[in-house]
Design a protein around this nucleic acid. Sequence first.
DNA 1: ACACGGACTTGGGACTACCACG
DNA 2: CGTGGTAGTCCCAAGTCCGTGT
Length: 883
Amino acid sequence: MTVEAREDKNMMEDMDDDDDAPLVFKRSGSSSKPKQSEPENKLSSQKHNAQVGRQSSDVRPQNGTNANAQKGKSVTSSSSMKPPVRPSLVSPKSSNSSVKASPIKSPDVNSKPSTSVVGESKSVKSTIKEENSEDSEDDKPLSARQVAGSSKNNPNQTNKPNAPNLGKKSNVPKPEDSDDEIPLSAKFQGKSNAGASTSRSSHSEEKKPLVARKPDKNGSASTERKPSTVLQKRPADGVASAGQSNLKKPKLSDSLASKDKKASVKPEVKAEDDEDLVPLSQRTKKSTTPEKKPSPALKTNNKTNSKTNSKTNKKSKQVSKDNNYSKSSKLPPSSGDGQKWTTLVHNGVIFPPPYKPHGVKMLYKGKPVNLTPEQEEVATMYAVMLETDYLKKPQFKENFMTDWKKILGKNHVIQSLEHCDFTPIYEWHQREKEKKKQMSTDEKKALKEEKLKLEEKYMWAVLDGVREKVGNFRVEPPGLFRGRGEHPKMGKLKRRIRPSDITINIGRDAPIPECPIEGERWKEIRHDNTVTWLAYWSDPINGKEFKYVFLAASSTLKGQSDKEKYEKARLLKDYIQGIRTAYTRDFVSKDPAKKQIAVATYLIDKLALRAGNEKDDDEADTVGCCTLKVENVEPVPPNILKFDFLGKDSIRYQNEVEVETAVFKAIQQFRSGKKGGDDLFDKLDTSKLNAHLKELMPGLTAKVFRTYNASITLDDKLSRETKGGDLAEKVVTYNHANKEVAIICNHQRTVSKTHSAQMLRLDEKIDELKGVLEELKTDLGRARKGKPLLAGADGKAKRNINPEALERKIAQTTAKIEKMERDKETKEDLKTVALGTSKINYLDPRITVAWCKRHEVPIEKMFNKSLLEKFSWAMDVDPSFRF
DNA sequence: ACACGGACTTGGGACTACCACG
DNA sequence: CGTGGTAGTCCCAAGTCCGTGT
């Protein structure tokens, strides 16, 4: 064992060296290309994700300030004591949006797609599209649509056109934008086609193989899924390339070698990208379709392969795959059987340093107490949190004490938290922090380098010959669990994770990472290429859950998956109209289950609500669409629904929305005869909902609506609201669109503690500038009349300046004031809205990249370094790309 | 039909690095 | 040159969704 490990090590190191180059995208220039081929593949397959979509703007929750407040979390400052604060606030800004669903034209929804057909469909669509071109409201978010309908009322939204149909919706404070421009709906109808229905998918049955374990080198047992045979070494190429990084070797057979592949691939790829050109509808179809559905044949192959697995298989597999389909079909290699990689090399994970006792004594009933290092460690975790709001929560304290007592032992002097005084430890900690802060820049730098050196080898993995960043190679240090909201387990001790808790997943031919802690060994070694994790351990707080180590977001693997997510959302565009028509029809279904599904789908589509899985009692009490309680939705006649509930992360969602009468009535009916805490949708859960959605579109799940609505909204707003203007104005336009999306998705943040002070300071500065402006104007008047200028504030006489110069100054000052006022507005506006989350997770980066290209905005203005890396797959999109 | 195990995405806040300012 | 505001990172919790075994 060890031996082997060693070898690896070397390898890796070498590689590392190569790369020093820090960032840079791994993929080579064309970068995306290579990948592309893969991505497609994936689509087809399995799992994954679909994601979300969203819609209209109207809906936005009102958050205003309140929202923030609500979150209980936060704030460290203790001063305020309030307990957990949560929601109190809230008042929304009122908005209501009205939404209506627009009924739209086309009839049927269901359409399930006929399979094949891709080509056809495409063409069809295209035609359609062109004709109608614009409109289709479908593309737009519901809300938007509605709004339009409602027309006047909604000020807010922005969105969509008024197409004829729209339903009405309401209002909300936002101004209306120009929605009008939008076209109408035309398109929808056709869409259906496509898809194959469903399922195809892939399940890879094989996956489960299980595990036989054998002891392996590290002593840990290794499991293998299949009978594997011998190991072959990893293909040389893999290694080689590894060093470099770039090309990923395709899984293909060696022969294909990257080059060929690329070449061949490219065209394909191109095609995809090109789709952009094509009308939306077409595009989507094209791309998506092919990708998604693997031909049966393929699947089979894959499966078999996978099963067989083991090295031999691997190789052979690959080959075969390639041959069979890969290129032509576009399927992703992985697609069929769920294989995610062929070779995987990494160095495992790094552990936090062992606890270093500080010896500072806390007081119990006023007297210093001796604690063992273990006891002291836990006491310190608590002491450090002295100034946080957590320590105001009884639940937290109780859980902490329960766990700490286990370590103190039954007869320890410390029996009650009440008599504990952690101040000495807290102060010691503050001093340590201060010391650190006071270190010179050089010292800090040295420290940083030292750390880097220690961690470097863990930062990278080589997957299929490509060097990729590892996301979280640091094992979580022990600490006190900080749950969000009113989590029943907050304050519990999260114990230290040891190597014997960790399962490593690595290529069969790769050396097993050396266990970094002397005398210990890994729990298990696996060689499962159907998953992407490099290591995992079970969560010490909730033993049923796992903590995984994955590749970073910038990796090809994640990039592919991300792209598939957006492609799926784009596919929804083709189905959305039919889906909306269908659920609208079911609002009045006699079948209660159907009716609930229809209403729930409507809410998910219109409000971008999350699915809402069931939760255990030992988790914070939060809800999503399927788990909404009667008390969370209040119908206000004639047709307004007031939502108020805690969603993911205990973030409050408050919104008033105008809905279609049928929905309004349905909600009233669902509520009747129930208590506040009862489920609004008693006949529904996420699996039923998603099963239904899958019948409407292959791979469709609730989250896809969020992605769809978020991306379509951005695309729509950008195209509608970008006027000429300078760079700064364009950026403002983008951020405005981004903000709309964040509001729709209810992405909030707490108001910074210094927000109000900052606003005041801005006001002061503006006032000051205004004073200067007045003075300049006075000066100008005098200068024009030839009078000497008045003395300045400092009492000194000013030099006389000619009127032109004064005018210039006035213009400058005026511009400065305007800019500051704009900045101030934006700041106030965004104080509770977080733009980052949607940018990272919901907005198809190709929309942004294409927009930047079209409007000559440097992409760096919109994406920071991490985002650029994460979205490297989207960089070469055609400027005409539209979601 | 379900409960449950499992894998992967999404999310806000703490922490840091960094940059403009007085 | 300290500072404070921020933008960017890190951290890890909390969701979604799939497959499975019962």
